[in-house]
Design a protein around this nucleic acid. Structure first.
Length: 580
RNA sequence: CGGGGUAUGGCGCAGCCUGGUAGCGCGCUUCGUUCGGGACGAAGAGGCCGCAGGUUCAAAUCCUGCUACCCCGACCA
């Protein structure tokens, strides 16, 4: 019976494996994928954001891992493994010990030395490389690992999709120059595309913000799903796609344009929100200008202007030199002191603090805005006539229907689960950590770096989110824990059925097919429901009824009608089904 | 970090308001009958009612404190 010895290819009997399915989902789960992963016995929660991978779930995790590893190797990356625990000194070198904040889990050893549980490994790999890499002859090189990481998330949720401990593939490449980095970056982009294609997931690669890791160019890979935590803007008429955090908003004129009229101050009691102002004046929200007062890290106040129907993009705002990444909304007291008015009646006219307006504001005439006096608003305000010394910037989120930045159509929005992120880091880490090499002319230069991450455990959750129905999970072949299940009816009682099932089990195993034989003494309904819940792609049902004619039933997960095939043809038919 | 909620057997829940020997469904064990879509009957096992303190003759139930977990928010004038 032992035809195959490599891990992950073992055939299995249910009686010798461990299935632990639940009829009802634990109350802690909200999302379909989270509920199903618990019900199918893929994972069990240990504590908030901490999950054990049960035997069945681990098989899926290993499948994903194997595909990622295969494609990374194929793309020329070299696997290594770094410690999960990292000394504080390394993080102090890059200042991230201070900057990373409470998400970084800090620990002390018995000698009171400080460490962190690695949320990422730029520092460690750069330290390795500065000791090992000397010459341009050794470049470029791309190291990767598949490893557990820990980020102390503000709010872990969605099971394995936003857990605190998770499995990640992270790769770091080192180059003599930017051109070499760009070549590897492109290769990684292609490898990622192959990975998600092989996993049979609906995904999209989008231009992204570089966030706290820093650097120049960056793409995220998103599995498309309603529950996704990121909004993606894309243009159906072109290949433009970007995270909404980054997508450039083109200044658009308001839909209605009217000739200028004189400025008027109007009493507007009890109107504080854009909605209320819009109702009071009976105008659309795009004819209103809202004013946000923010305070930067130095304690300076700045006013931000947005059209009433637009939202502030905090990522864009944080990049403005006047604000910086630690800006926040001013509190009510500060607003009253600065404007003489409570929030709800503030506006740009007469303000003495610096004003930054979204670019769309420059196209507005006859708009309504707060008068900096409680219960009063201006109407017929004009950008060109009434506002002075204003800085224009792109500080808003794009909206559905906005022009695409590439001018090739209109933007649509969708949501995605971020499962991969690639960055061109440049020399940010190599310079601060002094990781250099000697070029052809004998000159010492900082290494140019790239880094490339994939959330292995998150992919499993995202896949369930995308591939399930009312009966349970429906795995793509590439990540199914088993590819085919044999459900013999009356296995323990019917000699004919048992002999046929055992033979089929051996034949399929011999072909290297991952088969799960349900040899439990269960009624068919129980077997079927379990196999559907855990999402095995193919099911062979053996019963006395059809075996009498030498036939078995073949059913694909997700389909309702099974087909009758000859018992002796079954292994061949399954094999050909798997290769197409 | 702010707001809300929950905590009773492996899972899902009732009981709490109005204190008095802890219950239901699923699952589990044994026996019997069943046997192609989550069987039926009978008999069982399993619970410091999250933790600590208080009130009381008596606390799952009332009071105080703590802890854990979940949800919403942390984007707007």
């Amino acid at each position: 019976m032992l035809f195959l010895h490599c891990i992950g290819k073992l055939p299995m009997r249910v009686s010798e494996f461990f299935l632990s399915t639940l009829k009802e989902a634990p109350a802690e789960a909200e999302l379909p994928s989270h509920k199903l992963m618990l019900r199918a016995g893929l994972i069990r929660r240990l504590s908030s954001g901490l999950y054990s991978w049960m035997p069945l779930g681990l098989r899926v995790l290993r499948k994903v891992e194997a595909i990622v590893r295969d494609e990374m190797n194929r793309a020329g990356a070299i696997e290594l493994l770094m410690p999960a625990i990292q000394p504080a000194e390394l993080w102090q070198e890059t200042r991230r010990w201070q900057k990373y904040g409470p998400e970084l889990l800090r620990l002390k050893d018995r000698h009171d030395r400080e460490y962190c549980f690695g949320p990422t490994h730029e520092e460690v790999i750069t330290d390795i490389v500065r000791r090992e890499l000397r010459s341009y002859r050794q470049l470029p090189v791309n190291f990767y690992q598949i490893q557990g990481k820990f980020r102390d998330e503000t709010r872990p949720r969605f099971g394995v999709m936003r857990s605190r401990e998770f499995i990640m593939k992270d790769a770091y490449s080192f180059h003599p120059d930017t051109a070499s980095l760009e070549a590897t970056y492109k290769r990684m982009h292609e490898a990622y595309t192959r990975i998600f294609t092989r996993l049979s997931l609906q995904f999209r690669s989008v231009a992204a913000d570089t966030g706290s890791i820093g650097g120049t160019g960056s793409h995220e890979f998103h599995v498309l799903a309603e529950c996704g935590e990121d909004a993606i803007a894309y243009c159906p008429q072109s290949d433009f796609a970007a995270n909404i955090e980054l997508a450039e908003a083109i200044a658009v004129p308001p839909p209605v344009q009217t000739p200028p009229e004189p400025l008027e101050k109007i009493a507007t009691p009890q109107t504080r929100s854009i909605d209320e102002v819009s109702r009071f004046f009976n105008v659309a929200s795009h004819q209103i200008v809202k004013t946000l007062i923010v305070e930067n890290g130095q304690g300076d106040f700045i006013a931000l202007l947005l059209r009433g129907d637009h939202e502030l993009n905090e990522v864009k705002a944080a990049k403005l030199p006047q604000l910086g990444d630690d800006f926040r909304l001013a509190n009510e007291d500060s607003i009253r002191t600065l404007t003489g008015s409570p929030p709800g009646s503030i506006g740009p006219i007469g303000l003495t603090i610096p004003i930054i307006a979204d670019r769309s504001i420059a196209l507005m005439e006859n708009f309504i805005t707060g008068a900096n006096e409680e219960g009063f608003h201006y109407r017929h305000a004009s950008f060109s006539r009434d506002l002075t010394k204003i800085t224009l910037a792109d500080i808003r989120n794009v909206k559905e229907g906005d022009p695409s930045p590439d001018q090739k159509g209109l933007l649509s929005l969708c949501r995605g689960i971020e499962v991969g992120h690639i960055f061109q880091l440049g020399t940010r880490y190599s310079e601060t950590m002094n990781a250099t090499f000697l070029d052809e002319t004998g000159q010492s230069k900082p290494l140019v770096m790239g880094c490339y991450g994939i959330g292995i455990s998150r992919i499993v959750g995202a896949a369930v989110e995308q591939c399930h129905d009312e009966k349970g999970i429906s795995w793509p072949l590439s990540m199914a824990p088993f590819t085919v299940t044999i459900c013999p009816i009356g296995f323990r009682k019917n000699e004919t059925v048992r002999v046929a099932a055992e033979q089929l089990y051996l034949d399929l195993s011999a072909l290297g097919i991952e088969v799960l034989l349900d040899d439990r003494d269960e009624r068919p309904g129980v077997m079927f429901a379990d196999m559907e819940l855990i999402g095995i792609p193919l099911r062979l049902t053996l019963g006395e009824r059809h075996l009498g004619h030498g036939q078995v039933e073949l059913l694909s997960r997700g389909e309702t009608a099974s087909e009758l095939i000859a018992l002796q043809d079954a292994p061949g038919i399954i094999q050909s089904r798997l290769s197409t």
